[in-house]
Computed example of a mutant assay.
Amino acid sequence: MKIAIVNDMFIAIEALRRVLMTIAEHEIVWIAKDGAEAVAKCAKNTPDLILMDLIMPVMDGVEATRQIMKRSPCAILIVTASIEQNSAKVFEAMGYGALDAVNTPVLGNQGTPGAALALLGKIASIAKLNGKSPPPLSFPSPPSSVSFSSSTLPSLIAIGSSTGGPKALSAILSRLPANLGAAIVIVQHVDAQFAEGMVDWLNQLTPLTVKKASVGDRPQKGIVLVACTNDHLCLQVNQTLNYVREPIEYPYRPSIDVFFKSVAHYWTSRGIAVLLTGMGRDGAEGLRLLRSVGWHTIAQDKVSCAVYGMPKAAAELNAAVEVLNPDAIATTLLQRTRLNR
């Protein structure tokens, strides 16, 4: 894997270099000391992956991510001294197309082996996303009858998002009122270690109540539930949420397809499913299944996507009834969903 490092601290660059050298397949193609230098180098020699610092002189990692994803897009992993202290910038960078974030490994006795392993684990996951599509998921056909009455279920809005998702989610949720007459469940490709931070961040942007999705939760009107573990969120036969490890080999964690397909199987009232920006094909098959059982399905349009991967896959499968930008998606959700009176 051809990897570039963007960091203004020599000790951090050296720590990253040493970690990368432990894997023979990794090659460092260039190093930049600030975001502006990274933008220029990426335009001339686009790597498979950039390890992007956040806090740098001249141009920070957020703006560098924005410009790179616009001019010469590639996979970007945020590597910062503290994810927790820089959570707002992490989500902003993810909104522009960064895939994930991890703490910078530290050299010497102050460092921990776990930090290096976490970095290599993130790189391995991104390599899977770049290299191949995951195997298709199989679910039995949706049942023709269930014991739980659909009249007792609220309308459900199921949203899946990945690369660039936080920005699209914030644009949509900020336009929805607190008395929205529908339940919302979101599956965003985000690591569990800062998923809770994303929930807090989204709570500041919308009048709706945003919560972590916990085992046993049932979707409720006016509540936004967000998948918050590295396992897959799924709906069960009793319309409550659960987390499952299988399929273990699936590179997308949590998987949008796993959730969408469980919804098609067990949520007996019709709803709206939305597939937002992201790398790969996760969610496309699930969106097609939801359309086949009567759901109104929406894919984000190419112009507004940070990465037009997942929505493109949905369009190729004819899985989306509509293709819209985030503002138009919010308008459609309002038009198709009654408010609580």
Rank of each mutant, 00 (worst) to 15 (best):
N109F: 15
N86P: 02
H265A: 06
T268Q: 13
A213S: 09
S72T: 15
P140G: 15
G131T: 15
A64L: 04
E285Q: 09
N179D: 09
G280Y: 10
R18G: 04
N325H: 05
G280N: 07
K302T: 14
K167W: 07
C74V: 12
A98E: 15
R336G: 03
I11K: 10
P177T: 14
S149L: 03
V146F: 11
D301L: 00
E285D: 11
T277F: 00
A314N: 04
P57R: 08
I23G: 04
M9Y: 11
F139H: 08
A328W: 05
A330K: 11
G309M: 02
T297C: 01
N318Y: 06
K211I: 06
I248C: 09
V58H: 12
P254C: 10
L202N: 06
P207I: 09
Q220N: 14
L77P: 09
A306F: 11
F10E: 15
P207G: 01
L107E: 14
I329W: 00
R288M: 05
H296Q: 07
M69C: 04
M69P: 02
K89T: 02
V215M: 03
A12H: 13
V307D: 03
T65L: 00
L235Q: 00
T46H: 08
A299N: 04
R71E: 15
R253L: 03
A24I: 07
I68H: 08
S269F: 07
V39C: 05
A12E: 08
Q204R: 15
P326K: 06
D301N: 14
V190Q: 09
V146A: 09
T163E: 12
V187T: 14
S144F: 15
G121D: 15
I11A: 14
I11Y: 14
I123Q: 13
P105M: 03
R341L: 02
V323R: 07
P136N: 09
Q110C: 08
V6L: 02
Q204C: 12
T332G: 01
E84Q: 13
Y308L: 00
L176W: 02
L334Y: 07
E92A: 04
E322I: 01
F259W: 09
M9C: 02
Y266L: 01
D34W: 12
K132H: 15
V146L: 10
Y252V: 04
L156F: 13
R245A: 13
F148I: 15
A313H: 06
L205E: 10
S255K: 05
G97W: 08
D8Y: 07
A273C: 02
A15V: 13
T297S: 01
P113R: 11
A313M: 05
Q193W: 03
Y96F: 14
K70W: 06
I28E: 10
A43L: 12
S304W: 03
A273K: 02
D301V: 07
A32Q: 01
A115V: 00
